[in-house]
């Protein structure tokens, strides 16, 4: 079912895990292409569940989710992976494949999409440079610091130039410097056209970057508009390499 108007659209979505209680209730919102949102709420408010619905890891218990104009309930097993390739995900715990090198981790989304190795080498090389890991091509994730692993996870999420980029608490376990650095990466991805949703409970970060919020409170969603104009250094910018460190 094609609906060209809805980039990301949740219509009265409810969600529960198995036969458990409903953790998301009557979720209703639309994300326009090229927007940047924070997904906020306390721990247990349902942020991860909402993101899992968004990146097609779960199906709603009720309601309709439309992604890129498609009703996700009508997706076949062959179609769902094609849609997933348009979504970049930064998982809360990174979920990097420990047996693969940094290069191969980032190359993964391209390999599953059957991109040629020459193109993969070029793109992945550029991406790892972009996230400041050009010297760590062959490094295993376990040998990288927490901040480096997070940047590697971001590189993997954006390497296929997704239309939708979702990140689940990416700044949860890093210091302020690394959190800002990560935000710059998300902003760069936003600048090339990706719609970005970053889940966080870091109030300082939300305040500093001042993007509109999808706020979850006990499984119910409120959309909070932008309160203040974005601070100058956090606004849209050209794709640029972050400073190392």
């Amino acid at each position: 079912m094609l609906d060209s108007g809805a980039f990301v659209r949740f219509e009265n979505v409810g969600f529960s895990y198995g036969d458990g209680p409903e953790v998301l209730h009557d979720i209703d919102f639309t994300l326009e292409p090229g927007t940047f949102h924070f997904l906020t709420g306390t721990s247990g408010a349902g942020k991860s569940s909402l993101l899992r619905l968004m990146y097609l890891a779960e199906r709603p218990s009720r309601g309709v989710i439309r992604l890129f104009g498609r009703d996700t309930a009508s997706l076949s097993r062959m179609e769902a992976p094609v849609l997933r390739r348009r979504i970049g995900v930064v998982f809360q715990d990174f979920r990097l494949l420990q047996h693969l090198s940094a290069f191969d981790n980032v190359a993964l989304p391209l390999r599953v999409a059957s991109v040629g190795e020459t193109e993969i080498r070029q793109h992945v090389g550029e991406l790892l440079t972009w996230v400041g890991l050009a010297d760590a091509l062959d490094a295993r994730p376990a040998t990288l610091s927490g901040g480096e692993q997070q940047r590697l996870a971001i590189a993997r999420a954006v390497v296929a130039r997704p239309d939708l980029l979702v990140a689940d608490e990416p700044t949860g376990n890093v210091d302020d410097h690394n959190a800002q650095r990560m935000m710059r990466l998300f902003q760069n991805a936003h600048n090339y056209g990706a719609t970005v949703v970053v889940a966080t409970h870091n109030a300082q970060l939300v305040k500093r970057y001042n993007y509109p919020q999808l706020h979850l409170d006990s499984g119910r969603l409120n959309i909070l508009p932008v309160a203040l104009p974005p601070v100058p250094h956090a606004g849209p910018a050209q794709m640029q390499l972050p400073a190392n460190g």
Partner: peptide, 16 residues
């Protein structure tokens, strides 16, 4: 299981 789920979520077909 975890690796398979990651592959699945980044768009790997069942065939892959």
């Amino acid at each position: 299981r975890d690796t398979i789920e990651v592959l699945h979520l980044i768009g790997a077909h069942d065939d892959y």
